[in-house]
Design a protein around this nucleic acid. Structure first.
Lengths: 345, 345
DNA sequence: CTGAAAGCGCTTACAG
DNA sequence: CTGAAAGCGCTTACAG
């Protein structure tokens, strides 16, 4: 292993000046800096972020801790999420690491292990639940973190899609077209984003003077299989929904499948709105007809997350509410008035 | 952050003795040890593995580096692999971390970053290809590593299924039942385990005096979709195979699908053998009829991998060839003689 | 512009 | 059984 001392010996420059030359400080003679740089390159020097961290308190490593018992839909997007976050973090000159623990209960212990024992500067949290002990745990111990999502109570650094607005827009489109029997294929129960979207959708009902309790909300994994299964179940009932809100494009795929299986045309017989995370596997462009969507790229959220993480580690308090991402409302061809024969709620 | 110094102050014991007490050395008076332990627990002390590592050269962190552009089948098992390896590593008191880089080309750079700069003790390598620069890179730089698989040339620490034997057994069962037109649904091209399995299968042909070149080997991702697609293609040909070897149970699922689609019964019209990694999602018990398989739990491989990693870090050279895992040969009900009407190769 | 010195949290000979 | 001291690789006041 090549150290500053080795470069010092090779160049005759003191370790102090070698450190300053490589660290880009300006109080180093150009000639000295050049000599040091050359030797560092020649010897294959790599700065030891850990030793540096011992002194400065910053290693540049950021981590995420996940339990191994996450559900199917979590697994499905896990790889994309890890890759996306990792890339975004790298762009800020930080390094991303993933650590897996056996269960939810072991997550906080891993925070301590990694922060105090492993030179990790900060953590990224996703998939918040209610209740979720992680946020308070990190806040109480002053460990830097950024949440993808928001937790009620004490404010904290976060990046989040405006899920209330998502629910509001997706429901609003259907209501304004005249639909009254609406099914909302939402995400997992107890997930905060799910309940926020429901609240947004019900708000859309309320402001139009329609009873919000008539909205049928189904919680579960956001997969194509579940989308098909739940949609099929509801579409086969005599008072079938005339409009469906899909929480993402995978669920929407399932709705398309179910509509086909029931011989229902979109939008003539069934209207559908969906949220589009702009994931490569399930592009909204792959649908016929093009769906009406709220759109917000998960990649944009990850980039914002990395940015906020970088600020948080640097000690800057990100401004409250700066983390809220507005979805784009993109009308398509998947919404029409309900079919003439359908009784209206 | 609580340090040894804090405990020293709280107890009046020197930092030296505190370190020894907590480290479990035997040259500490019991009363002192008890006092120190109590204070450590009360203050919430956590040893800083990084500072320790600076002194001892061991942090207890083990990492795996994966490129983000891995293929579909790689993504499918990635989560299970990471979880399985992580658990196995934890059981040895080590900590596992995953780091993602953009492409294959950046993997070696990440090794340097993590080893010299990030306090990582050693690396786990999987999915070896040919050629694969990673093994030589780590060997040349004396960074500890263990491979799941084997690389030709200089010996190195590894754990690997005896893939030659797998190919030999799976082909042998079909040949001995009288099959001559055999399709081998193998894994990705350029993967060493794929070619080793092919070699084993061809060896089974050769020792029986049958031309090994008549074995039809198809390379690709080991997914159910591909299994179905390739099997369908072959089964619809006039000289369709009467026996199929499936590289894993996901491919086998696809074969079962294809057979059903063609109206072929297993084993009356089509014999199938498969390798079973004993993964929770695709249990061999879920098939009808029960398939004849070579069986070797990936979990066992991961446990062995962690064990070898632990030894390697500790400086012990694991014995050569101790890492080869023998598959279990478990005959089922999926092999019968070829149908009477079929011309025999 | 430069270098000797102190110190981040830890461990381990060394000398009692 | 105990503790002062040195040192892992680095950075940063401090004094030239």
């Amino acid at each position: 292993m090549v150290t500053l001392k080795d470069i010092s010996k090779a160049t005759g420059v003191s370790v102090t000046q070698v450190s300053r030359a490589l660290g880009g400080h300006d109080d180093v003679k150009e000639a000295t800096r050049a000599k040091v740089r050359e030797a560092a390159a020649r010897l294959g020097y790599r700065t030891n972020a850990i030793a540096k961290g011992l002194k400065t308190g910053q290693t540049g490593f950021v981590a995420m801790v996940i339990p191994s018992d996450i559900d199917a839909s979590g697994r499905e997007i896990m790889f994309d999420m890890v890759v996306g976050i990792s890339q975004a973090i790298s762009r800020h000159g930080l390094k991303f690491l993933l650590h897996v623990v056996d269960s939810d209960a072991q997550v906080t212990g891993a925070f301590d292990l990694l922060f105090h024992g492993g030179g990790i500067d900060g953590f990224i949290l996703t998939e918040l639940q209610e209740p979720d002990p992680r946020v308070a745990y990190l806040q109480d111990r002053n460990m830097p973190f950024v949440v993808h999502g928001q937790y009620p109570g004490r404010p904290h650094p976060f990046v989040d899609l405006d899920n209330f607005r998502v629910g509001e827009v997706l429901a609003g489109w259907l209501l304004d077209a005249g639909h009254r029997r609406i099914l909302f294929l939402n995400g997992q129960d107890h997930r905060i984003y799910s309940s926020t979207r429901t609240a947004g959708a019900r708000h859309a009902f309320a402001v139009r003077g329609i009873d919000p309790s008539t909205l049928d909300v189904a919680h579960g994994p956001m997969t194509q299989d579940r989308g098909r299964a739940v949609a099929l179940d509801r579409l086969r009932r005599p008072d079938r929904p005339t409009g469906i809100i899909a929480g993402n494009t995978m669920l929407a795929r399932g709705v398309w499948d179910a509509a086909a299986a029931c011989g229902l045309r979109i939008p003539e017989d069934l209207s559908v709105t969906a949220h589009d995370d702009v994931l490569a596997q399930y592009p909204a462009s792959g649908f016929d007809p093009v769906p009406s969507v709220t759109r917000s790229a998960l990649h944009a959220a990850w980039a914002a997350l990395a940015d906020t993480m970088s600020q948080t580690i640097a000690g800057g308090d990100p401004e409250p509410d700066s983390g809220l991402l507005a979805p784009e409302a993109v009308p398509g061809l998947s919404v029409a008035p309900p079919p003439a024969g359908s009784s209206r709620g």
